[in-house]
Computed example of a mutant assay.
Amino acid sequence: MKVEKIRDLTLVSIDNQNKMVISCDSCGSIGLKSGDVFKVDPFYVGRFTARVALLEVLCSGANIVCITNAICNEMNPTGKQIIKGIKEELKLLDLDDVVLTGSTEENFITTSTGLGVTVIGIAKEDKIKVNNIDCSCILVSIGIPKVGNEIDLDNDIQIASYKTLDKLLNTQGILEIVPVGSKGIMYECEQLAINNGLNLQIYENSNIDLYKSAGPATVLVAAVKDNCLKDIKDIENLNVIGRLIKGEK
C-alpha cells in the first residue's frame, strides 16, 4: 500500500484504479464559550470547519464517503449545534447520506470551543487532480480572501462556492484546483509550482491581496490551460494572477 502526503492531503492507493483521499481541519477558540476569542454560534464553527476539509477532498476530484467530527466540548448544547452546522454544509453538496461520525467531551467542563474534522473520499487514479500539471498554464483565483467577521455567515457571494467548484471540475483544461486558507493565495501558488516541478510567475498588476488569509477557504486557485480560460471567464470574482511555466527560469 502506497501512502503519500501532498499539500494538506493524504493519498492512499487502494488498488490500481482507486485512491483514498484524506483531509482534515481544526478550529479552536471560536464559539460562544467564555474562553472563545471570536464569538459566533457553534453552528457556523461546524459549517466552516467542515467546508475547509470538504473542499480539499473535492478539489482533488474525489467523491466524499465519510466525515468525522472530533468535538472537544459537551454534546448539549455545543456539540448539537456543531453537528447541525456540518450537516447543513453536507446538505449544500447534496451529501445528506454521507456517513457522519464523531465524538464529544463529556468528562470535563470546557471553557473554549474546539473541533477537528476529517473527510475521506475516493478518487479514480486516472481522474485525480493532484500534481497533475504537465504544461505551462494560467493561474486564476476565484473568490475574495476573507476571515472572521469579514464573512457574511449566511449569504456571501464573494466566497468561492461549491457550484463554482463543480463548474471547474467539469471544465476541460482545468488541471488542478486548490482551496486557499490561512496561508494565503501566494503560498498555495508556490506549493503548486514546487509540487509540479514548474516555475511561478505572478503578474504585478494582480488586483487581489495574495498574502491575506482566506479563512475558511473563501478562495480557490486553479491551474488552467491557456485555451480554456475563455470557458470560465464568466465566473464571479475570478482574477488572473499569474502563470506556471515549464522548463523556463
Rank of each mutant, 00 (worst) to 15 (best):
Met1Ser: 13
Val65Gln: 12
Cys59Val: 03
Ile245Asp: 10
Asn205Tyr: 01
Ile133Leu: 04
Val224Trp: 03
Leu95Ile: 08
Ile22Asp: 04
Ser213Thr: 12
Val117Asp: 06
Val240Glu: 05
Leu165Pro: 02
Asp96Ala: 03
Ala70Lys: 11
Ser103Thr: 15
Lys146Ser: 05
Val240Arg: 02
Glu204Gly: 12
Thr164Asp: 09
Thr110Val: 12
Ala53Gln: 09
Gly114Gln: 07
Glu74Cys: 02
Gly173Thr: 06
Phe43Leu: 11
Ile174Trp: 06
Ser26Thr: 15
Gly85Ala: 06
Leu95Val: 02
Lys84Val: 00
Cys189Val: 03
Ser23Gly: 13
Thr218Asn: 08
Leu90Gln: 03
Gly28Ala: 14
Lys39Thr: 08
Ile245Arg: 02
Leu192Val: 02
Ser103Tyr: 04
Ile174Pro: 09
Lys84Phe: 05
Val65Thr: 13
Lys230Phe: 15
Glu106Tyr: 08
Gln201Ser: 10
Leu238Gly: 00
Asn132Ser: 15
Ile235Ser: 03
Gly85Glu: 00
Leu93Val: 08
Leu11Arg: 06
Thr171Glu: 04
Gly116Tyr: 04
Ser60Phe: 05
Ile194Tyr: 14
Leu90Lys: 05
Val119Arg: 02
Thr164Leu: 04
Tyr203Pro: 01
Lys233His: 10
Ile174Leu: 07
Gly31Asp: 09
Glu248Ala: 13
Gln191Val: 04
Leu229Ser: 03
Tyr44Pro: 07
Leu90Ile: 07
Cys24Glu: 14
Gly85Ser: 10
Val240His: 02
Thr49Glu: 11
Tyr203Gly: 07
Gly116Val: 11
Gly46Ser: 10
Ile235Asp: 03
Val52Asp: 03
Gly181Cys: 12
Thr164Glu: 15
Ile86Cys: 12
Ala62Leu: 10
Leu175Lys: 01
Gln81Asn: 14
Asp8Thr: 10
Ser136Ala: 10
Pro145Ser: 11
Asn132Gln: 06
Asp96Glu: 15
Thr10Asp: 03
Thr49Phe: 00
Met20Leu: 15
Gly31Thr: 10
Ala222His: 03
Asp126Trp: 00
Glu204Ser: 15
Val3Thr: 12
Asp166Pro: 01
Gly121Thr: 12
